[in-house]
Design a protein around this nucleic acid. Structure first.
Lengths: 147, 147
DNA sequence: TTGCTTGCAAATGATTTGCACTGCT
DNA sequence: AGCAGTGCAAATCATTTGCAAGCAA
């Protein structure tokens, strides 16, 4: 998705949620768009120092409610945020257990299909209404493997 | 795994880590064993009121370092703990996005095999050393669907 | 004894919120 | 003008830790 299309999508989602697309929010979207995986609040503030932490927290909450971003918790104490799958497409995360960094990756459509079918079966037998799945790969990233 | 076997396994793991198998720790294991999914600290304290919160936190950390339990963060603000897969076998989680409750489930071995192969491929091309995967199904549990 | 464990209460740190100010509309 | 958004600083709340007393080797 191009930057302009993304912008339009975000604007539409915010409008649906009766929220404005302010400059702080634009800057947030742009910071998230720039990363190659979900970002922590600290990383976002470091990227764009003109954004105070409280504004980042508050706007990410609003953007999450509007369906623009997704909040992710891996294991460490910092929540991470990324653009919603609606905007970026379905994907998964490589989580480095050494440094905590998270990088996106995708799976073959055939594998996803197999997986979804199996998950649906499991959900049904547990009396569960399946909504979506979340798949992470835990391991060590290239940089940490070197060290 | 029977209760006694579990006990022996835990004892061995703690011994390897130069840790004692105290009565607090036994009570924790027993509480975790009783649940049908990972438990929050609050749930554990509610189950066994003789355990002070600080002891629960401290011992769960030690049990985690010894490889006896695993800490899980879903999305809400409470961490959850479960017995390590080494003890219970590989499984996944059904996470209710309404009430936050988590229940275990398993997938067919064939699906797991397909998945692992696909994940290994993705890891390699990202320069990542894969360790394990984590797969959750998000949705609504039977109780919350009723409401 | 000697050191690990416990339990209370106080400290920490990510996240949230009150309030006064600024800027859209 | 009138209300939403912002930024600072103070408040919250899960989690961690200091310390004195209890227990195991």
């Amino acid at each position: 998705m191009s930057l302009n299309d993304l912008d339009d999508e975000v604007a539409a989602l915010l409008d649906d949620a009766d929220q404005r697309y302010t400059s702080s929010r634009r800057r947030l979207i742009s910071a998230l768009q720039a990363g190659d995986g979900p970002l922590t609040i600290t990383q976002i503030v470091a990227t764009d120092a003109s954004l105070p932490q409280s504004t980042v927290y508050r706007n990410l909450t609003i953007l999450e409610e509007a369906g623009v971003v997704t909040r992710i918790v891996t294991s460490d104490d910092f929540a991470r945020y990324e653009l919603a799958e609606k905007l970026t497409g379905h994907h998964h995360h490589l989580i480095c257990t050494a440094c905590g960094d998270v990088v996106d990756f995708s799976l073959d459509a055939a594998v996803e299909a197999t997986l979804d079918k199996a998950l649906d079966g499991a959900a049904v037998s547990a009396g569960f209404t399946a909504d979506s799945h979340r798949l992470d790969l835990l391991g060590t990233c290239r940089d940490c493997a070197k060290a």
